[in-house]
Amino acid sequence: MNLKPETLSKIDEVITHYPTKRSAMLPLLHLIQEDIGYLPEDTSEWIAAKLDLQPINVLEVITFYPMFRQKPIGRRHVKVCRTLSCALLGGYKTCAAFEKEFHTHLGEVSPDGEVTVDFVECLASCGTAPVVMIDDELHEKVDVAKAKQLSDQIRAEAKQR
């Protein structure tokens, strides 16, 4: 596991917040995912050793939460809501537009490495459906046209890098 020194110190610090070490499992998983972008295969063993657990105890948690990724994703994460309101107002079309824009399929890394498009459940903004979250930013009323516009923006930002 190749973690940044800041992550390691955050990890050691966060463990002290809990009366039992085991409780620090979720924060640790988040920290590692923030650092590496996903949870590499040896995460379970690394955390188990850190928290005096068995690796299977960690794997159970990793596989329970859809938010934890076991594979690398694109530089930006496009999360399209597919719950009722968004689905009724065209969430699926929005999603297809993103897939087309980046020549990719759900859950995969686009060929240019720029995005991964995923469906997610209700983002609690049903009134402005369909909604899309790109990394930590919420975009409302994302129809096909707005999806294209957002895609252009992502590509433009990529060029500046």
């Binding site: 068995q54 690796p55 299977i56 105890n57 159970e60 596989t63 329970f64």
Partner: peptide, 26 residues
């Protein structure tokens, strides 16, 4: 876990597809 202290089994993918598994590699 409790009797043999060999905690290698667990449920992964909890939900409709909950699957009993032995930790990969063990």
């Amino acid at each position: 876990k409790e009797i043999v202290k060999d905690d290698v089994l667990g449920f992964v993918d909890r939900g409709s597809y909950s699957t009993l598994t032995c930790y990969p590699g063990k």
